[in-house]
Design a protein around this nucleic acid. Structure first.
Lengths: 222, 222
DNA sequence: GCATATTTGTCCGTATGTATA
DNA sequence: CTATACATACGGACAAATATG
């Protein structure tokens, strides 16, 4: 067994640190709104401030960090506007990707693998794992379009969305209910019914968006 | 007259330098494939190497620079695969944006302004200016979708595409013939005929892509 | 194939300006 | 209003990798 799930050896130190910070942010270790002190974080990650600043620029561009001039960076606080925008773009990208999917495209195998991982994680009650697998499932959908630029753009959207997920208390409600819907989607796609698959995807996106927005509405009341 | 066309005062130095370098690359001052020495460029731009490296990371992520570990960065050399990918994504984004355009959306005014600028530049024989105006025209089309993430993603694609345009000798052939097509598109949109506008856009994208690819094929022969 | 020069990758110290207690 | 803390940006240093003669 090779280390296919391992992060590649990090071409440069900055890229490696960027990946590490991305994980901490999407993984919820760093909470939205939290300020990140250059000096403290550089010491913690055992890199120089210069290197860390390179990373800050990257993650700011990706939307995971917010940069306030002369006041440093903090973890981005997702807004309802951001969630609406992200789901709008997801519809635009994912639905045509499914609808125009070439039969027996390799990405369909990746979708099946992600689906299996999601069901496995559900069996263990690992809702965080279910969420990760679900994101891989949708990344595989985008890969159906065979566009590297679309794929990397979608990865960015995904990271930002996970930030929003982190604000929601109950991950089971968030991720648990969608496994069966997505399994139907996959079955339709494997049967060559791209239109049926696209319809199920649209339904999923609508439901998921509503769930996130409702959770947001509850949070903003507090 | 305010300086609404002026670049904003650059929140940070790195952002300003990034904008400057972006202009030099898309403007053809820096040619594709050209290596960029950290020390030389830093001296030229009167910034420290550290600041310049932050900029390099940003532009590498945007696809304008290529980074080879321990061998520095060079201006990206656009490939046919990149051109194909960019046009694929442009179709996916622009066509639905037009087809679902809300009547009297403010971006339609921006389209008209860009069109006027293109016609003006053509009158002066300024084909570079025609190209810039044409890109603004299409950026305005994307704004019809009201999605900030889509807008900034498209800006990136545009910059990368201009890199490819720079390899083509005859800018008149590249940009000159499309003004009238786009004028028709705009007229259809203003008349509320979104479907007709979308059809014209598709035709434009097909023609433009073919032109770029043919020019590429000629170049690769040399 | 080797010795040397150049360049990148990374770190540190420090001066300056801005925001906040 | 002063003092303090911090981000910003610079320049110098050095090891490691790469290119050159």
């Amino acid at each position: 067994m090779t280390d296919m799930n391992q992060t590649p050896p990090a071409a440069s130190l900055a890229e490696g640190i960027a990946a590490e910070l991305r994980d901490r942010i999407t993984g919820g270790i760093l909470r939205p709104g939290q300020r990140l002190s250059e000096a403290a974080l550089a010491a913690d990650l055992v890199v120089s401030r210069n290197t860390l600043r390179e990373v800050f620029r990257l993650l700011t561009r990706e939307g995971l960090l917010t940069h306030l001039p002369n006041r440093g960076v903090s973890v981005a606080v997702p807004s309802m506007a951001a969630v609406l925008d992200i789901y709008r773009v997801r519809r635009l990208i994912e639905v045509p990707a499914i609808a125009n999917a070439r039969p027996r495209h390799p990405a369909i195998g990746a979708m099946a693998a992600a689906m299996a991982a999601a069901q496995d994680a559900r069996g263990r009650g690992d809702w965080q794992g279910v969420g990760s697998a679900n994101m891989r499932f949708h990344a595989a959908i985008v890969e159906l379009a065979d566009s590297p630029r679309l794929t990397s753009f979608f990865a960015q959207l995904t990271a930002e969305l996970r930030l929003a997920f982190g604000l929601i208390d109950d991950p089971q409600e968030l991720h648990g209910s969608f496994i069966d819907t997505n399994a139907d989607l996959l079955a339709a796609l494997q049967a060559g019914d791209t239109q049926g698959a696209a319809d199920r995807l649209t339904a999923y996106l609508d439901q998921s968006e509503r769930l996130v927005l409702e959770a947001f509405a509850r949070i903003e009341l507090r």
